[in-house]
Design a protein around this nucleic acid. Sequence first.
RNA 1: GGCUUCGUAGCUCAGCUGAAUAGAGCGUCUCACUACGGAUGAGAAGGUCUUAGGUUUGAAUCCUAACGAGGUCACCA
Length: 590
Amino acid sequence: MSLIQEIKVNAAKVLNEIYQIEFPIESVQVNDTKPEFEGDYTIVTFPFTKQTKQKPEEVAEKLGTALVALNTIFTSYNVIKGFLNLEISNAYFNDFLVANYTNTTFGQSASNGQKVMIEYSSPNTNKPIHFGHLRNIFLGYSLANILKETGHEVIKANLINDRGIHICKSMVAWIREGNGATPTSTGIKGDHLVGDYYVLYNDLFKKEVGVLVEQGLEKEVAEKQAPILIEAQELLRKWEANDEDTIQLWKTMNGWVYEGFDVTFKKLGVDFDKFYYESNTYLSGKEVALKGLKNNVLYQKEDHSVWIDLEADGLDQKLLLRGDGTSVYMTQDIGTAILKYNDYQMDKSVYVIGDEQNYHMQVLKLILQKLQEPCADGIYHLSYGMVELPNGKMKSREGNVVDADDMVAEMTSIAQKNTEELGKVEGFTNEELLNLYNTLGLGALKFYLLRVDPKKKMIFNPEESIDFHGFTGPFIQYTHARISSILRKANDIELKSVAIEMTAQEKGLLKQIEQFPTLLLQAAAEYNPSLVCIYIFNLAKEYNSFLANHSILKADTNEQMIFRLQISTLVKNVLAKGLNLIGINAPERM
RNA sequence: GGCUUCGUAGCUCAGCUGAAUAGAGCGUCUCACUACGGAUGAGAAGGUCUUAGGUUUGAAUCCUAACGAGGUCACCA
């Protein structure tokens, strides 16, 4: 049981004994005591005044006296207004330290039998991965780690959107202007090559529209009649008709993209357990729609199109099958959701998707519920805000995006520059250095994207993102490397149990570390990796401050040194674990 | 316009299941190496928590409205 939980349980018990009133355990508010007051944890007693009909100070006094008498973990208390400040015994933290400094699984929860699928990344195959996708990818990967750590069985899924008009646009541009170019012939990474033709398509499209407008057509009409668009639509028709040449080209170009994605995913250090392809699933929602029609959950209009009426739920009418019987985006997603469930029977299905699809996801879940599909209730949309540049949104159509590969390369080279300027390259082989730059560059990038609450939109400030000071990944990596260095020097010192008086800062560190498992559970429950970022940053900061005030290897006594080495070991383990959970490596040296 | 998310220091963000003087980082200005890693630490300045009402012993936090910003309301995906 966590310390805070233990305080709550004890307080509720004692309140019951004093007042003969049942206070639920969760009604006890326990906060960290503010630094300007004496004590470790504070119970707020205002909430108990109504039922006890006593002043908050009185309740606090009685509660404090009883707690100190009840349990040896409480050594003393003081009351200020309605706040009961409790001091926790050093022995409690000493026991905690002894029990955990060699425990490499500290923070991990036992299996809870829950199975969760996390769908993330889910790229289109007509363009490379850009900065906005990185937020998605890091979120999904990190969340998977956090859920695993807290006892869930996790399936990482990637739904590749490999069909549709967008890829046909790249194909048309390639047919027209490509002259048989391939990644090998051009030396361009496959996803970038295909992306270039997507941008080219849009250039050509604009030109053709311009010509038509000059010929006197309305802009709106011209945008529908541009020959290149007609060609792309024709290509999509051929694809759906299984035209051999079209399928062949489609396979080839998608293949280039997958090779490119593969390189990027590896570079980013993320992976997947299961890939779904929309070309395989896009027809799959149809039978469900037809079944829904039989059950009168859906209805049919005169043109044979199939709809669901969600107006009673405050939403709109939604089309599920076109008049010609073909499916739309929503139908596909229904089919895919059911397919996934049939594959894994998971308890929860998390979709990491941008907040522009909030409405879509709400409707998807509701429709599945109305269809009484077993997968419906487990659906959770982890909605995240867009990443914006200081001067506005990125649009891949216009090519003004921050490309993910470029970004990683940029961050890696900044890591190199910083390391060289600080003269910290000695003792590394070339290969180790390259590895290190990658670790630091990615550490900075991932932390920058994960430190903000997912649901909020965030601004990507290029200057700030390359900073390696303060609330950043490298700051924490640095702290980890620093501890590692100290521990290396103390390698031959035997760590045995010691009992000493601890300083306020030592106690503070232990108190913070004790909260780590609880924090992970919270991050998992809220699907929020940023909590981990904030936590390990605060821990690293506290440790650095501790280090400035305490000598370890030159401590006054041998016991003190051993005690501080044990604390350092534990801090190091927690920092490394925290970093790993958000997908960041913790270097031994840097 | 309907629905929805959001508005906290010059900037980027915590705090939002109500509770003590609203916290970090960056930036600005001081200070600290006879030290285990200065990619550090200590300190200062900087806030009518968008505004106006309401609920409450108590509101940045809950409710209502206004103002401002984003998203969405396709037989696109």
